[in-house]
């Protein structure tokens, strides 16, 4: 994969905001956004058991949520 599954941005922060600002907001950009039509013979998870638990047979469609904090932020 050459794309990220989360994008973050820094929203505008006003001096007048009453709550301590969240400097960074993040949102999901799941893998299906980047696959116009899934290619034939895509990579599969090695075992049926793993695929069953992941919810998809295809590794390119798997989107772990939530991403671990280190991966997600910074």
């Amino acid at each position: 994969m050459t794309y990220t599954l989360v994008k973050c941005y820094s929203p505008y922060i006003s001096k007048m905001d009453p709550c301590p600002p969240m400097l960074k907001k993040c949102f999901s950009t799941p893998p299906n956004l980047y696959i116009p039509f899934q290619p034939y013979n895509s990579e599969q998870f090695p075992t049926a058991r793993e695929a069953l638990y992941k919810g998809t047979l295809w590794t390119c469609l798997y989107d772990p949520y939530p991403l671990k904090r280190e991966e997600n932020l910074e």
């Binding site: 994969m1 050459t2 794309y3 990220t4 599954l5 994008k7 973050c8 949102f27 950009t29 956004l33 980047y34 991966e71 910074e74």
Partner: peptide
Amino acid sequence: AVEILKEERDRKKVF
């Protein structure tokens, strides 16, 4: 707009 949000900006993080 969706394409703009999909763009890899700031930190490039490859999985």
